[in-house]
Amino acid sequence: MFIVSQCLVAIATLLDLASFQFKSRNAILICLFTSVLLTAVHFFLLDKISAACLMFLAALRYGYCIFARDLRVMIGFMAMSISVVYVTWQSWISVIALVAALLQTYASFQTNDFTLRCLMIVGTLCWILHNVLVFSPVAVLLESVFLISNIIGLWRFYGKKAVIG
């Protein structure tokens, strides 16, 4: 199962790589929706139930955010994330996944893609730490690629303007 889990997250990595190279918030969220579903299955295969459930919730959240951004729903997703970790608690490492999920939930509901990108960076750093601690090397690679892609996209759309402007 370990090899299958790493293959699934490798496919998710390609989607993450593409995600932040789009300017469109919806295109970013569609890529993330698909990537996170694959990552959820990956964590289930590794028996990391808290992380798997948080990723499944993240997929639902990204799917919802493609069409709407009601802040009451954001609070609902945050409450569900906290509840999921409470119910599926495995170790203190689950807290790192929860912090990542909460940051990225807040990011998903932002209307400004710059704010979305910046918050995603911090959440991604939390997921990298989580994935190192649960020993999922391809998931570390996935989140690292996601982080680099996000930073490149941030530079392409905002950094050049700051330097030129």
Score class of each variant (00 low, 15 high):
Q21L: 14
F22I: 10
F22K: 12
R25I: 07
I28N: 03
F33M: 15
F33C: 11
L37Q: 08
H42K: 07
F43P: 00
F44S: 05
L45M: 14
S50H: 06
A52M: 08
L54Q: 02
M55F: 14
F56S: 13
F56N: 03
A58H: 04
Y64E: 04
I66D: 01
F67S: 12
F67R: 13
A68K: 14
A68F: 11
D70Y: 10
L71W: 13
M74I: 05
M78V: 10
M80G: 05
V84H: 01
Y86L: 14
V87G: 06
W89V: 07
W92M: 12
S94V: 01
V95H: 04
A97Y: 04
A97S: 15
V99P: 01
A100F: 04
T105V: 06
Y106P: 00
Y106T: 10
F109T: 02
F109S: 00
Q110L: 09
T111K: 12
T111F: 12
N112A: 10
N112D: 15
L116T: 02
L119D: 02
I121D: 03
V122K: 05
G123I: 03
G123K: 03
L125M: 15
C126L: 10
H130C: 09
F135D: 14
V138H: 00
V140K: 07
V140M: 07
V140W: 08
L142V: 06
E143M: 10
I148Q: 03
N150W: 02
I151D: 01
